[in-house]
Design a protein around this nucleic acid. Sequence first.
DNA 1: AGTAATATGCTTACACTGTAAGTTTACTAC
DNA 2: GTAGTAAACTTACAGTGTAAGCATATTACT
Lengths: 225, 225
Amino acid sequence: MKKSEKNEAGIRSPLARDSVLRAAVGLLDESGIDSLSMRALGKRLGVEAMSLYNHVSNKEDLLDGALDLVLEEIAIPAYDGSWKTAMRERAVSARLAFKRHPWASGLLDSRVSSSPARLRYYDAILGVLRQAGFTLPLAARAYSLIDSYVYGFCRQSLNMSASGEDSQDGDSQELRAQDFQAQLPPDSFPHLAEMAALASKEGYDEEGDFEFGLDLILQGLESLL
Amino acid sequence: MKKSEKNEAGIRSPLARDSVLRAAVGLLDESGIDSLSMRALGKRLGVEAMSLYNHVSNKEDLLDGALDLVLEEIAIPAYDGSWKTAMRERAVSARLAFKRHPWASGLLDSRVSSSPARLRYYDAILGVLRQAGFTLPLAARAYSLIDSYVYGFCRQSLNMSASGEDSQDGDSQELRAQDFQAQLPPDSFPHLAEMAALASKEGYDEEGDFEFGLDLILQGLESLL
DNA sequence: AGTAATATGCTTACACTGTAAGTTTACTAC
DNA sequence: GTAGTAAACTTACAGTGTAAGCATATTACT
């Protein structure tokens, strides 16, 4: 019996699926995907690992639920006359959510889920595009294109974060670029060396990169209307 | 002593790093990332798991090496006057490689590597863009944009494959779309329902989707030159 | 109030995982 | 032939997810 889950009278403070999922998100945010085991989570909640199975079917179900909590943080755009603004807001929102929960994007593509929250989310995106005048096939393609880009960008930017203790400040990014530059054999990779020198001097503008790509895509789609 | 690794005279056929990695790729291709354990791989090679550690430092090193083998399958474009053709070929080549090795793209973003093969690869891409007249900052952004899209697209298309036993023929894709449609509450998600009906009728043209996005991006980049 | 049924937390156990540490075998160089 | 080394094998451990059974708390019914 865990004291943290029982008061003096011996009453259990019951787990619920939601609290299990929220604790999982907390643990994932703090220590990443590899730190999540049923035992670690159980310990965090003051119960034994097997108790979690009263609330989630298995670890996969747990991860699905945790992911859904993150997806709920992504703004569902309302169409207010500008589909580009709506899609931009949603893309930025998604990127921020994935940045807050770096583990989440890695789960997105390895699970197929038809939870109501996700269906609502997809429907709303399609709705914005349809209202803006996209044909159904074009709406589907636009959606796929934007999503692929946003998602791919987020995944790739994790690569950079992972190489430097998750530090996001400019100093450590400059240090990284300098380290990288120092590692390069002088003449083998001229273009890479060039780019590393630029990054070393000016720093890496991740947000600028993201916006650049997003704008280009949105403009390209607009030209098809 | 494993018979498969010894002939009658008791001579060991020695493992080498390359054969270890190739066997890993084979296992990953057949059965996916979750099937790869050191013991499973050792068994496949006719040795004990611990013997693998003479050739790879640890499991991470093994996965890095396996990924490098896949990346070597991606064409390094030569600049022959058309940067768009070069970038297209490379994007298509990457997509095909990831399609052949569905597990690979999932590894790409969780590991940071500076193997010579990868540096050569990145340098060649940047080289094409620079030769085409892209400024250095623009080349970096173009590269990031295209890569994010290609990578994100591949990851997302795995989502669809995963829901249907990796079957790629039209029949099972139509079945999936119909199943999906049947699951939708009638009026809750009108746009999704609409799209599911379309996919059910016409099938899912994944390659068309990919080309559409790629073309749009390449055209958008061209307009910046 | 008492009791049966149910929900839920705990315990034991198992098969599996990566890999440390030590042992054995095969190979190489002298 | 022998010493040294590379590499394969063995034993063991800590950790993983979770099946099955047990114990406890809660709820519903009479």
